[in-house]
Simulated assay, not measured.
Amino acid sequence: MGIDSIHQTAIKAFVFDVFGTVVDWRSGVAREAQPFLQRHAPNLDASDFADAWRREYSPAMEEVRSGRRAYVRLDVLHRENLVKVLARFGIANVPEPEIDELNLAWHRLDPWPDAVDALRRLKARFIIAPLSNGNIRLMVDIAKRAGLPWDAILGAEVVRAYKPSPLVYSETAEILGIAPRELCLVAAHNNDLAAARRVGLRTAFVVRPTEHGPRQTSDLKADEAWDFIVDDLHELATQLGCAR
């Protein structure tokens, strides 16, 4: 997309998927789980454990999205999912404080190498904020640890709905006081971008080919002609004319 086309879009804010797009959840959860597993399941691979925990993510949110369950924040779902995964692996008799502590693994994730500096570049010209299914405290803790320079914390808990529910995207534009076409979602997941586009948001795909580890098979390329398709967030900032 050329600079003239970019100006025509009149984008005023960029919001970001966080898990997988801005931070490396798999490595972080595996790292945080390793000491726990050494105590309780020393033969269990920490990355396999992280993957199993993550597989419960979408089904748990679907209970809320479908209306079968009232909204609860992601920290609650993560802990319930953790208890399920512990049982599945036969890990029993874990003290409740240990489970609570392990659940905080999601609060201590590292950013991808390009994320912090590229976000600072974008922040100089645009409003930037997370648009994550993570709850507010979760997003704050990740941001403070990683140095993510958000202007605001937005996302699921603010609107009390989970992506890809249309309300998450449309209400975020409303909260920012802008039209949907003036808001761009940045994500490494085609389904997230498709949902955002359906309610009028601009879209930016960034490839994260190792989000799910070395054998990742999903989201290795853009499935549609998104407004921006980039290899990392610095490329996005450069296309938008943001200074280094």
Rank of each mutant, 00 (worst) to 15 (best):
L82C: 08
E98K: 04
E98A: 15
G90L: 04
V140S: 12
D75N: 14
D110V: 10
R108N: 06
N81H: 11
N81I: 05
L77N: 05
I128W: 03
W106K: 10
A115W: 00
M139T: 04
R125M: 11
L109M: 11
V140D: 14
I153T: 07
V158N: 13
L102G: 06
A87F: 02
A124D: 14
A87H: 08
R145I: 11
D114Y: 05
V158R: 15
A92R: 14
D75S: 15
F126Q: 07
M139W: 06
V83E: 14
R145F: 10
E96G: 09
L138V: 02
F126C: 11
H78P: 07
N133F: 02
L82S: 06
D117I: 09
A146Y: 00
A92P: 00
W106E: 00
W106N: 03
D110W: 12
I99D: 03
L119E: 02
L122M: 09
V140L: 12
V140Y: 09
V83A: 15
I127S: 04
D117M: 12
I127C: 08
I91K: 00
W112M: 03
I153Q: 03
V116I: 11
M139N: 07
G134L: 02
N93H: 03
E157M: 09
I153N: 04
I136W: 04
D75R: 09
P113H: 13
D141N: 10
V76M: 07
L104F: 08
F89A: 10
A115V: 01
I91S: 08
R121S: 07
I99S: 03
L109V: 05
P130Q: 05
P111Y: 00
R79S: 12
R121D: 07
D117G: 13
K144S: 13
S132C: 11
A105N: 04
E96H: 09
R137G: 01
W150K: 00
I128C: 02
L77E: 05
F126S: 10
D114A: 06
V116Y: 05
R108W: 06
L154E: 01
D141A: 13
L104R: 08
A105F: 01
G147E: 12
L148H: 03
G147Q: 10
I136L: 11
A118I: 08
A156Y: 01
V158Q: 15
D100M: 12
L102S: 05
R137A: 13
W106V: 06
K84P: 06
E80M: 10
N133D: 15
R125E: 15
V140W: 08
D75E: 14
L122G: 04
L86P: 10
L74N: 06
L131P: 01
A124C: 09
P113T: 09
P111F: 00
P97M: 10
R145S: 10
L138H: 01
P149N: 01
R145E: 12
R125D: 15
